[in-house]
Design a binder for these strands. Structure first.
Lengths: 164, 164
DNA sequence: GTGCTTGCAAACAGTTTGCAGATAG
DNA sequence: CTATCTGCAAACTGTTTGCAAGCAC
């Protein structure tokens, strides 16, 4: 992964190339996104940026994230139950590992996806353009106090539709 | 895949085992779910069932789907952009192939997922309980009139969070 | 100065919930 | 008879949009 400052500069350059203006709020947001290790939500970014610019609105955060997503610099992980998460460092499809208890999201080291994609393309006649692979489970920290779990059902996951 | 009538009987039995009552609306819904080839949305099921019971409400459809999901008889595919889809025939995690133009969803023949899950478990220390794998692309039908596409960005997909 | 951006508030969509009346068992 | 179920409508949540004022360039 590139270092945050380099990534930040890249994001600035990409936006400028798209005739976007660099407002202070936007610059601060880009810094946050470039520096975010995990997969922050819009609300999370909003709360961070309010520390610097108290009048910033959530809508601005969403608009900037949308902008970055449109130019392919941010990956949006949509969740129908929960708020979406954003990855500004690896804006291309890659597997995620999501703790169902603490909601932490990490990038597991998984290979083989490309071969799966090719397999699907070959067998179905679809032109496969993208994919999404999420694993759900308990992170090491959450496995300890997890004995009382055994709630209802396995209750499977639920991704979001890709936009056209 | 089991035939619809067998699947229907199974769903009835499972619900009765959970002290659920078999109202006419519910029976009709179970038939629809058992017979659905694709991955219907709640709205789609609602529109179908209204043909038989015009006063049925969307809330009833959602409540029944929730019930079935809780006892592990329906897989919910949540989408943050679009309405959720339900699979009442294969209620366990399995890959989906989603056309980004016509929204058709099919089950591609993919193996290897289990080995991926094991790989993730081994390498991360997470207890992997479930997963979700979606491929996005253009189905054969939609590939033809698809030249004028080339819209904005690849615009990646966006799954839903698994409920706890 | 021009027009993109902000921030507020209202709109939005799909889903969920509360509750009174209906009904399966 | 009684606990569940239905159907309506209102609530909810995260996200999006419209628009007037503000600001980058």
């Amino acid at each position: 992964m590139t270092d945050p400052e380099t990534r930040f500069q890249h994001l600035v350059a990409r936006l400028k190339a798209h005739d976007c203006r660099m407002t202070p709020q936007r610059v601060a947001l880009l810094r946050l996104i470039a520096a975010s290790e995990g997969h922050p939500s819009a609300m999370h970014l909003y709360e961070q940026i309010k520390a610097q610019f108290p009048t910033t609105s959530l809508a601005t955060v969403y608009k900037t994230l949308d902008l970055l997503r449109e130019i392919g610099e941010v990956l949006e992980l949509g969740f129908s139950n929960d708020d979406n998460r954003y990855d500004g460092n690896k804006p291309y499809p890659h597997p995620h590992l999501i703790c169902i208890r603490c909601r932490k999201i990490i990038d597991p080291p998984v290979t083989l996806i490309e071969s799966l994609t090719q397999e699907v393309t070959r067998l179905t006649g679809y032109q496969v353009l993208s994919h999404r692979l999420d694993f759900y489970g308990l992170c090491p920290d959450c496995q300890q106090g997890a004995q009382e779990r055994e709630t209802t059902a396995p209750d499977i996951q639920t991704p979001t539709r890709q936009k056209e």
